[in-house]
């Protein structure tokens, strides 16, 4: 089963349950008492998921490691590499700075 099919199946099942609930109003007391809540639940769920997604992404952006140290070390190693390669007889294309 592809991921698309998995999603369609999952959403299909949820949709079927929701349809059943909103159409069983007449003979189900629970549905009668919470009809609006159930009717608008898909919109509520999408909204809550959107908030969840947004907060997760922003949290991860905020906590994304900035590797300052790695950049400093790399700059030093580039210098080291240039010096040692020159000693080994490597001729850089640019004139040595």
């Amino acid at each position: 089963m592809t991921k698309l099919q998995e999603w369609m199946s999952g959403l299909g099942i949820i949709f079927a349950i929701w349809m059943y609930l909103i159409t069983s109003r007449s003979h189900n007391e629970f549905v009668q008492n919470h009809y609006d809540l159930i009717l608008y639940s898909p919109i509520t769920c999408v909204f809550i998921f959107g908030l969840y997604a947004l907060s997760v992404v922003l949290y991860r952006v905020y906590t994304f490691n900035d590797c300052e140290q790695a950049a400093v070390e790399l700059a030093e190693e580039i210098q080291e590499a240039k010096e040692n390669l020159a000693k080994l007889g490597f001729k850089f294309k640019e004139t040595a700075k």
């Binding site: 994304f64 490691n65 900035d66 590797c67 300052e68 950049a71």
Partner: peptide
């Protein structure tokens, strides 16, 4: 873990 980026 300790992974990350520089310059973004």
């Amino acid at each position: 873990g300790g992974g990350g980026v520089y310059g973004w």
